[in-house]
Design a protein around this nucleic acid. Structure first.
Lengths: 358, 358
DNA sequence: GTGAAAGCGCTAACAG
DNA sequence: CTGTTAGCGCTTTCAC
């Protein structure tokens, strides 16, 4: 049962004190080259790796940051994290990932766990969380940056995009194609400021035209293809169905396309559909999904930059707004002529039968 | 600047020794209820959380396991990890995730990093790695389980499936549809036993019919839609093109469908395509992608079980073989009549022009 | 440039 | 059931 080599073992073999070994590891410049090399050989020979706990205890620093994301089963978070991790690794910092499953309490617990593990900083998704959590963060003097969200007057450092503006833009594009009966399949807005902002953005655009976005035309669905499909089928089953469905994200958009097809409607001839995020599947769908491109990788990189800046002095950092871009693809077309123009959602037009399967 | 509360602070406030506080935290049953409650109140009041480093140092245990996966940007790993994490969390164990980017050296480095952090165990993907790595693992007495792979005579505990058998099954299905000019777009086989086994499985099935799987009909592509698309276009540009393309995974399968469409071929009338993994996009494609369903979540759960069993005593565990299932969908059809039946790859048949876009 | 020594916060014998 | 007391492996003054 071989014993894990310790600093002391290295010191003994190299014929120096543990302090010197520690210096070789942490400030090589402060050690005479010959000594240094002797130590390095000993390290090599023993296959020594510093004990993380010991180091954390003595230095009160872990070179570790934590990220809490809703779920890994979601390409958009994965991609951003990957970039974040790469940049942190370049700076010698390890990333710890935890998931909250879109649950506020679980997120709070994960934050606590990560902090208990001594992470030097945190990356958190969105800004919707209890004041108590922010107070806890402040009490622990834990630096953090919010991602996936950006507001001009956000109280905390964040790097993200303006979900409200982007969603409003989508709705305006859809309006530009002549649609007036517009529905939305939103993500779950509870504890989720991104989903909420997107709803509000769409609503604002519609309001500008005197249109409403309310109950039967506004459905919340969780982040699954099937949920999007079911929601779309519900929307389209109604008489007075929408001619366009704006989806809170691409997964719901993909689901909506499946649902529309299952209900016998053609996209975009019978109904237009848009998504949000521009993940891979958006391009694979037929027709391809019109969506909002979010540069997840760049967001990850910027988050890394802010976080690294944040941990050193008490240097203040400024939030970063990432630009998004609407990508027009085949799933968005002009409003079908049979649909009433300019009417509100309740003008009584009926089409009891869909066009039927293609 | 508030000082992070320590065990001693709690002990002082509760009027007990640090040992008692420690017991309350680690073995509450061994403390008299009244004392326990006093301590718990102090913990509460101070918002105390144990210092991870201190604990790791003293107990030589971290209640943490690490997983090294190729990349997070891949739904199949994400899903398995999610399940793994959930089950570990139930046992009070935290999961640390690191990525290797499909690079052997980087994987070795990540293993070392995780071990340095004191993880109690490791989850590793596949079994292809240098002996030195296995030796290192053994030297550190680090328990680990391999996932995503299974062989009857694998030397290490693993929970996965038989990539060879599953791939052979795919090829036999394809043969069953009358195809004889069969090509494969494989994942990168270097340092990847899963990709390699899949190639060998397909090759074995073809060999049984006296067919070969070689150079122009065997292309390796990295894990991206575009790579799959490019590979498919190359395959289909050739005269004497394949009537079926077996892909090493669904991403390549999706790419192949895009490529085939771009080249003006219809799926499955002109060319059949299969994937492997059964990720979401398989069902979203039109036609849907025939593929091998891999129960990733179950694999994650089982890995958690083995790992938890492995860390307690020196209890031996037995590897687990997860069943996979071929899912037949629209992308696999009968071989077009124009294609030569039963001939080898080089029988000289030519079709200079594809059918052209639909 | 290097060594001696004092902790960092916690757990685990061992006493009592 | 509770307290005393060594460390765990490392960093970091402070001397030399």
């Amino acid at each position: 049962m071989p014993h894990r080599p310790s600093l002391e073992d290295v010191a003994r073999i190299a014929g120096v004190s543990t302090a010197t070994v520690s210096r070789v590891l942490n400030a090589p410049a402060r050690v005479r080259p010959e000594t240094r090399e002797r130590v390095e050989r000993a390290v090599e020979r023993l296959g020594y790796t510093p004990h993380f706990g010991g180091r954390a205890l003595a230095s009160n620093r872990t070179d570790t940051v934590g990220a809490v994301i809703p779920t890994m089963e979601n390409a958009i978070f994965a991609r951003g994290l990957q970039a974040l991790q790469e940049d942190l690794a370049d700076a010698g910092v390890t990333l710890l990932v935890a998931t909250s499953n879109y649950d506020k309490a679980q997120e709070a617990r994960q934050i606590q766990t990560l902090l208990a593990r001594g992470v030097d900083g945190l990356v958190l998704v969105g800004e919707a969380r209890d004041d108590a959590v922010y107070a806890y963060l402040a009490g622990r003097a834990a630096p953090f940056v919010l991602v996936w969200t950006w507001r001009a007057d956000c109280s905390w450092p964040c790097v993200g995009f303006d979900n409200f503006a982007a969603a409003r833009d989508v709705a305006e594009r859809v309006l530009g194609f002549g649609h007036r009966r517009i529905a939305m399949i939103a993500g779950v807005t509870r504890d989720n400021d991104r989903a909420r902002s997107r709803v509000q953005g769409v609503r604002a655009a519609l309001a500008d035209r005197g249109l409403a976005l309310e109950a039967p035309f506004l459905i919340e669905a969780d982040y699954r293809i099937e949920a999007g499909s079911a929601a779309a089928q519900r929307l389209l089953a109604d008489t007075g169905r929408p001619t366009a469905i704006i989806c809170g994200n691409d997964v719901l958009g993909a689901g909506a396309m499946v649902g529309a097809r299952a209900a016998g409607y053609r996209v975009p001839q019978d109904v237009s559909i848009t998504g949000f995020d521009d993940i891979d599947i958006a391009q694979l769908l037929d027709p391809a999904l019109s969506t909002v491109h979010v540069p997840h990788r760049r967001m990850g990189r910027m988050a890394a930059k802010l976080l690294l800046a944040l941990r050193d002095p008490q240097g203040t950092v400024t939030s970063v707004c990432i630009e998004t871009e609407f990508i027009e693809r085949g799933s968005l077309g002009v409003s079908p002529p049979s649909a009433p123009e300019g009417g509100l959602g309740d003008d009584g037009s009926r089409q009891s039968d869909p066009h039927g399967p293609l």
